[in-house]
Each structure stands twice: as C-alpha cells, then as structure tokens.
C-alpha cells in the first residue's frame, strides 16, 4: 500500500454517467489485476474504493459511475487537479490459476478490474473469452478495448440493445465457451448466478461498504467457507468454493 497525491491526466465520459480518470503517480504497489485504489475526496470522510482498470510505471486509470455526491465531485474535476489515493489495495485475481483458457464474466463496471487480467492472460498465451453484461447499450464500457487486445468478446444487455437479450449467464449458455477457469466481477446477483451455473473452478471479486480499505477496521467482513474474511484486505477476490452467497 502506498499513499500519495496523484495528478489527473484526463477525466473523460466513456458511457452513460460513466467516466474514466487517468492519474499520474506511483503504481509500484499495484501487483495484480483486480486490486483497487481508495480515493480521498474533499468534504467526504471516507475514501471511495475504485478498481484499477490499467496501469503502467507512472500512471493508472479508474472507471467510475456517478452514483452519489462524491463521484459527482470527481466527475467535475479537470486535468491538472490532484487527488490523494491509497494505492495497491486488495489481493487481486490469480491469473496463474488458469492453465490454458479463461472465461471472464463481467457485468457493468465489473469490466474494469478484469481488464488488466484479460491482458495478462493473453500475454501469457492463454485464450480469453469475455462475456460482458450491461443494462443497455448506453452503459457499455471497454467493449472495443477488449476486442482490440484479442479477446473473444460476447455481449448481453437486459433490453437487447446490444448482443443477447438477457443476463450474462444467458450469453454464456448461448456461446458455450471452453475454459478451465473462470473469473467474474459485477453485481452480486450476477456473480452468484455465474458461480452457481458454471461447472469447474473460478473466482469472484466481491463488493462491500468499506471503512479503511486496508484491513484495519474490520468494517467489510464477509462470511466464507474458511471463516470471516475482510473484503478489502483478504479479498476482494475469493475462490468460488470459499464464497457463501
């Protein structure tokens, strides 16, 4: 974990009420896809946890949706302004758990934390099928980026405006992808359906209201098959067999 001031490089609208913010600053504490940063916003007591979508040696990107006052303030910020981040939080995904081919099932902004995971898997010579679900076409993010990196991308929307009409699980049924390991990130009901409908091993990135974001307040503890775990520090990624839905 590191705490530093990051300078906003860009803050662009990429979908309905959804922004990608690129920030310059130290990224040495980011080790695995699925890790997150905790953003301090002036006037708000707690930080906002956001997944790192991608990063290089001196900058990172987060994707966020304006859902409340804190994210509304973020959306009004301009390049050159700075934000204090705690960086490199959480365990992240286990890319090595996949041997040859992976299924990534994501919903909404769940596409963000699995983005670097897909890149890492492809770079390691593994096949990656990404099934993405959104409410409607206007909410879709990162679809072209996933395609550009060489992933086999399939889509589902609740209103049928993009891809299969229905849930991510409906698209998975239609595609019948081959995989030896799956990864999922998105709304809890979606991840539950994915974990319960898919045979074979996998993991999911959970979400909970957090206090500290780094494991010292025990505010976000969930029940797991191996006892109580802090979503922020022991997770957010947990193995399918460990999760109690």
């Amino acid at each position: 974990m590191e705490k530093a001031l990051y300078t906003i490089l860009s803050n662009e609208l990429i979908a309905d009420k959804t922004f990608r913010m690129r920030l310059a600053g130290p990224t040495g504490s980011l080790k695995r896809a699925g890790q997150f940063v905790d953003v301090a916003i002036d006037g708000f007591y707690l930080r906002r946890p956001l997944a790192a979508q991608e990063w290089d040696s001196d900058s990172l990107a987060v994707i966020y949706k304006v859902v409340g006052e804190g994210t509304a303030i973020m959306s009004d910020m301009a390049p050159g302004q700075s934000l204090e981040l705690l960086c490199g939080l959480g365990n992240g995904f286990d890319a090595d758990a996949c041997r040859k081919s992976a299924l990534i099932a994501c919903g909404g902004l769940g596409a963000s934390p699995v983005f670097s995971l897909a890149k890492e898997l492809l770079e390691a010579g593994k096949k990656v099928c990404v099934v993405m679900g959104f409410n409607t076409a206007a909410d879709a993010v990162l679809v072209e980026e996933f395609k550009a990196m060489g992933a086999d991308v399939h889509l589902a929307t609740m209103d049928g405006s993009l891809g299969v009409k229905g849930f991510v699980t409906d698209a998975i049924k239609a595609v019948q992808p081959e995989f030896d390991y799956f990864y999922t990130c998105g709304p809890a009901p979606m991840m539950k359906a994915v974990c319960q409908s898919l045979e074979g091993p996998g993991e999911a990135s959970l979400e909970e209201r957090m206090g500290c974001g780094c494991g010292i307040c025990y505010g976000c503890t969930c029940h797991t098959a191996s006892g109580p775990k802090r979503v922020c520090a022991d997770g957010p990624v947990f193995k399918k067999e460990d999760i109690i839905w």
Binding site: F44, Y45, L46, E208, R209, M210, G211, C217, G219, C220, T221, C222
Partner: peptide
Amino acid sequence: ECPRIAETPDGVLN
C-alpha cells in the same frame, strides 16, 4: 452483518 459502515458528515458510523 454488513453493511456495518456508513459515512456521516465529518465522521463514520460503525
């Protein structure tokens, strides 16, 4: 059970 954290003006409920 969670949620067991809530933000408040200049503070936090746990």
